[in-house]
């Protein structure tokens, strides 16, 4: 217990230092500060316009009306924004660091390499993206006439947190494969294609083999769908159990692939 407390205090101090260094770097490259906000903001605005055009011609897509779809887009945008703010820019460099042997530097420091990689490139420029996503969600709730009580509100926040963990796991898992192969470019391409598809298409659209792929093997289809379903009262116990099981399985898998990968790592010759 005492060790855990010590560890947490140490990690907190490291986190504070990493944030300081990061802010200093960002003030050097000021022009790049809000770039992720504008790029990803435009991406999700395009999604909103697309579904506005679709809903101008139909009343429902599956069981969802316009409001629910807006909440879905906002939720996916929020998951993406949280990742961009906290860990994306750090994790994206993992394959390069493994290939070049730069990972040595992370292994020689008295802090978990993954902890440092996760927090070393936080990007406060993405915070407006978080705010924009929240606005989209609130707009969706109003447009859909969805009443928010403490039960569905808490359920939504709970599933959002759980799916943020899944999002993080997938980011780490795909990049950890670099410990075992020369190039993970194809996996990155696969991740991009899956994200591109699932940010546009809610999980309710998947059936048969597509459901197996996007709810089980590459669970991007679950990420924003479960929080929205919990908010609009479409969540079932079976679905909830499935969601938790998937997150636990992928957490375990990520942990395993990462720790085994670190053991396999042979500096620049990896």
């Amino acid at each position: 217990m005492n060790d855990l407390g010590k560890n947490l205090r140490k990690n907190y101090r490291v986190l504070k230092e990493l944030m300081k260094i990061r802010f200093h770097n960002l003030t050097v490259f000021r022009l790049d500060f809000f770039a992720p906000f504008f790029v990803d903001g435009s991406l999700f605005l395009v999604q909103l316009l697309v579904f506005r055009a679709v809903y101008a011609n139909v009343d429902t897509v599956g069981s969802w009306k316009g409001g629910e779809m807006i909440i879905y887009i906002g939720t996916f945008s929020l998951l993406n924004a949280v990742s961009m703010t906290i860990c994306f820019f750090g994790l994206i460099g993992i394959p390069g660091k493994i290939l070049s042997g730069e990972m040595d530097l992370y292994l020689s420091k008295p802090v978990s390499p993954l902890f440092r990689l996760t927090f070393e490139k936080m990007n406060p420029g993405s915070v407006p993206l978080v705010l924009m996503s929240l606005c989209i969600i609130v707009y969706g709730i109003k447009a859909g006439g969805i009443s928010i009580g403490w039960q569905n509100g808490c359920a939504y926040i709970f599933w959002l947190a759980v799916m943020a963990i899944l999002y993080y796991n997938m980011e780490v898992l795909i990049r950890s494969v670099s410990f075992y192969v020369l190039s993970n470019a194809r996996l990155a391409q696969l991740e991009e294609a899956c994200l591109d598809l699932c940010m546009k298409l809610p999980g309710i659209a998947f059936y048969g083999i597509f459901k197996v792929i996007f709810y089980c093997l590459l669970p991007y289809g679950l990420m924003a769908t479960l929080p929205v379903q919990s908010l609009i009262g479409e969540m079932t116990w079976k679905l909830a159990a499935w969601g938790i099981a998937v997150v636990l399985t992928f957490s375990l898998l990520t942990c395993l692939v990462w720790t085994r990968g670190l053991k396999r790592y042979n500096s620049a010759s990896s």
């Binding site: 897509v61 391409q189 298409l201 659209a205 998947f206």
Partner: peptide, 27 residues
């Protein structure tokens, strides 16, 4: 791989419009 990944665009269209057209003949 570029060839294979074009499927994501078609898959998006197929799944989205399959749902839409389940309740409508013409959009």
């Amino acid at each position: 791989f570029n060839m294979i990944f074009t499927v994501s665009k078609i898959l998006f269209a197929y799944l989205l419009w399959r749902m839409v057209f389940s309740g409508k003949e013409v959009v």
